[in-house]
């Protein structure tokens, strides 16, 4: 799977970053590889009632209870009916200053690539399908468009209004 990774710490090298690319409904997305813990096959999921559709389920990853994140709902995409090819990318994200493991549902995992900082363009406001808040930028690789996700914003929990008065 790792094709272009010269060394693991290359993400810190100036100007370029190592990202893991994966597909969601035929589009290619990328996430900073440094935060990726592991990639696992689908596990039995436990639905959480009343949960934000963004985080609908929990799974057991070797003894740790990990929330499953459906980024498609946040990116405004419909879930594909065919879930067979699904994989889970377990990443660690800071939530309220607390390192939290989440499992991101993806259709398939592609590869780890190095993206040069200068190759990252801001996403054009017009013609974008995705909320700009959650996108760090886009990069072209050959003919392929890679959408870089913004970890900081994408995984931020929505504050439930239930906390205030009922």
């Amino acid at each position: 799977m790792v094709t272009h990774a010269p060394q693991a710490s290359a993400s810190s090298r100036e100007g370029s970053s190592l990202v893991l690319t994966f597909s969601l409904q035929g589009e290619t997305f990328a996430h900073d590889v440094a935060r990726v813990h592991e990639i696992i096959d689908p596990l039995p999921m436990t639905r959480v009632p009343r949960a934000d559709p963004f985080v609908p389920c929990l799974i057991n990853v070797r003894g740790a209870i990990v929330p499953v994140v459906d980024v498609q709902t946040r990116l405004g995409m419909r879930r594909a009916a065919d879930e067979k090819a699904m994989r889970l990318v377990v990443i660690e994200v800071p939530i309220d200053d607390e390192a939290t493991k989440v499992a991101m549902i993806v259709d398939g995992v592609n590869e780890v690539i190095e993206i040069d900082g200068s190759a990252i363009a801001e996403i054009p406001e017009l013609g974008s399908r995705w909320p700009a808040d959650f996108i760090r930028g886009i990069a072209l690789r050959g003919d392929e468009l890679v959408v870089l996700l913004n970890t900081e914003t994408l995984f931020r929990p929505r504050r439930s209004p239930a906390r205030t008065l009922n």
């Binding site: 436990t46 959480v48 009632p49 929990l58 939530i95 939290t100 929990p157 239930a162």
Partner: peptide, 16 residues
């Protein structure tokens, strides 16, 4: 529960 589910009324936690 994680920050995503902590505030859901009626849930106290999770177990394996």
């Amino acid at each position: 529960l994680s920050a995503y589910h902590r505030d859901i009324a009626g849930l106290a936690g999770a177990t394996i």
